[in-house]
């Protein structure tokens, strides 16, 4: 099965270049960084000094759901950047170096090639994200209070949809240009533009992909899944699938050599 062959080769590649080790570690740091530093802020300020005599430092009033949302906020910045960085050369790199010239003269369908690579990056991101969020859950539970398993996993899966979109978008740009740095730039600019659009028109477009984390906050506060979240998640899934299909068509029109 060609799909499995490529999928396994990608896993081996990311194993040999240590992505399977450093990406989960980076995700752990990204996820626990904010909740922990918020909790220890008074101690940190105290040890750094410079506060006037007699200042009473109290931990900020943070509820558990706010604390775990801090992880998502960091993920939507640094996490997204890491995801784009590890996926930016998945196809572009092979085309640029010339390996694609050997691979794509074999009878491999382009969709197999694209989707197997997409799936492997998804598995890597899923694993890292899961480990990172479990760590965050542990610390939030310890320092701020309880987050139920139900809350945690619904948050986890809804936000995962956004991360899948980020991977799909990166893969999409991989088929358009073959300079990894350019893939990174285009993807990040697109996400920033989408985020700006989301902020301006959020009232009119509650289903916009970038609004997912906002809806998740609401979900944690109200303890029920808002309809808009279902809408946003559906739209995001549709967009991701659309991007993959478009990638296939774009790659087909590209010439694999200059």
């Amino acid at each position: 099965m060609q799909w499995i062959t490529i999928f396994k080769k990608e896993i081996l590649e990311d194993w040999r270049n240590y992505k399977w080790i450093w990406v989960p570690l980076v995700f752990i740091v990204i996820c626990i960084m904010d909740p922990i530093s918020t909790y220890y802020l008074p101690q940190i300020l105290e040890s750094v000094g410079g506060m006037p005599e007699g200042t009473v430092l109290e931990p900020p009033e943070v509820v558990p759901s706010q604390a775990i949302m801090m992880s998502l906020t960091e993920l939507s910045m640094l996490g997204v950047l890491v995801i784009v960085a590890i996926s930016m050369s998945v196809i572009a790199g092979e085309r640029k170096s010339g390996v694609a010239e050997l691979i794509l003269v074999k009878p491999v369908s382009y969709f197999t090639y694209i989707s197997a690579k997409w799936a492997e990056k998804l598995l890597l991101v899923f694993t890292s994200y899961l480990i990172g969020m479990l760590a965050s859950w542990y610390y939030v539970d310890l320092l701020f209070g309880q987050i139920t398993a139900g809350q945690f996993f619904s948050l986890f899966f809804f936000y995962l949809i956004w991360l899948i979109f980020v991977i799909s978008l990166t893969i999409f740009y991989n088929t358009i240009v073959k300079v990894p740095g350019l893939v990174l730039t285009l993807t990040v600019v697109t996400i920033m533009a989408m985020s700006a659009i989301n902020q301006i028109f959020s009232y009119r477009m509650p289903w916009f992909p970038n609004s997912i984390s906002g809806h998740i906050t609401k979900m944690l506060m109200e303890n029920s899944v808002p309809n808009a979240l279902w809408g946003a998640v559906s739209i995001t899934i549709i967009l991701s699938v659309g991007l993959l299909i478009a990638s296939n068509f774009i790659l087909k029109t590209k010439e694999m050599a200059d």
Binding site: E13, N17, S97, G98, V99, E101, L102, P107
Partner: peptide, 16 residues
């Protein structure tokens, strides 16, 4: 493509 074997002028492999 299944009937063809091709060696480019400067073959590039996965070095790893």
């Amino acid at each position: 493509r299944q009937y063809i074997g091709y060696l480019p002028q400067y073959p590039i492999f996965h070095p790893w």
